[in-house]
Write a protein that binds this DNA or RNA. Structure first.
Ligand SMILES: [Mn+2]
Ligand SMILES: [Mn+2]
Ligand SMILES: [Zn+2]
Ligand SMILES: [Zn+2]
Lengths: 144, 144
DNA sequence: TTGCAATTGAATATCGTTTTCAATTGGCCG
DNA sequence: CGGCCAATTGAAAACGATATTCAATTGCAA
């Protein structure tokens, strides 16, 4: 990792090491605050801006991407070889991923048709996840 | 329009009338600030918060939807019968629409598979529009 | 070891969004 | 036609996530 960062023009530091490690441990779709909480538990001296900056670094070196869902909080998603879409539960904010191989060619073609140079594709389905639907049903039952 | 608003529990006011009219005149993908500028030209007394609130009203009554592209500015898009996706130029912020009939069934199916109750579908392609590519090329030529 | 750019933490700035509050007004009812 | 009251308005302030500033520290190449 240190070597990898060097090729990208970044130094390794203890703070960066902990932040990177924590990010990759936490799995997908992490917000600055969530990562800060985790990192801060392990090292109370690490500041919020350092966590924020290092998430940007993780993106700059191509290991993650920002995900914006319009709820005012940017999440950071590990980059995987497989492009995917997101099901976003408006209630619990959970993100469920799904494969988009089937539709990607169509989107690529659409971009080409309009002479658009596409950098990235985003597919999001907003709604209510299975669990939150169940909770909603229970709540409605109680009203009878 | 006044009657329509009444059925939704809203009153008509001169400010609202002007804001609604201006919004529909401006076409698609309007930000609060853009609409405020336009409205403010016609009536210097109308405040920013009134414009903001009325855009929310336009959404509440189902005539528009918020569009979030991760650039920190919410845009308001007239609701049309036809679902569509967006090509978003990162340089000039222009939005180009495209039809998504072909991929919608796949997304609906995906939601069902995961027992997800889908409210809305969002498809965005980020990149550089034709004009901005041309500008970029010109700039690069000049460097030789 | 030295020099210097990169990094860090705290504080502060930014900026679009949202709320507060007092004053005004639309529209229903008598 | 008034009177009433909830809805609406405009200005100002609050919010909150993101981003920057700055002085101090540190990684690391030479
Ligand atoms: Mn993801
Ligand atoms: Mn649109
Ligand atoms: Zn949920
Ligand atoms: Zn452009």
């Amino acid at each position: 990792m240190k070597e990898f960062l060097k090729t990208k023009g970044f130094k390794m530091t203890p703070q960066r090491e902990l932040i990177f490690r924590s990010f990759f441990e936490m799995g997908k779709h992490v917000s600055v605050e969530e990562l800060y909480d985790k990192v801060h538990q392990k090292d109370r001296s690490i500041g919020y801006s350092t966590v924020w900056r290092n998430l940007k670094v993780i993106c700059k070196v191509g290991l993650a991407e920002e995900v914006n869902l319009g709820d005012g909080v940017t999440r950071y998603d590990r980059v995987t070889r497989e492009p995917h879409g997101h099901l976003f539960c408006q209630n619990c904010k959970r993100l469920i991923e799904f494969d988009i191989h089937a539709v990607l060619p169509y989107l690529v073609e659409t971009g080409e048709e309009k002479n658009f140079r596409a950098d990235s594709f985003k597919i999001e389905i907003t709604g209510l996840c299975e669990d939150c639907q169940a909770m909603e049903n229970k709540k409605n039952e109680r009203l009878h």
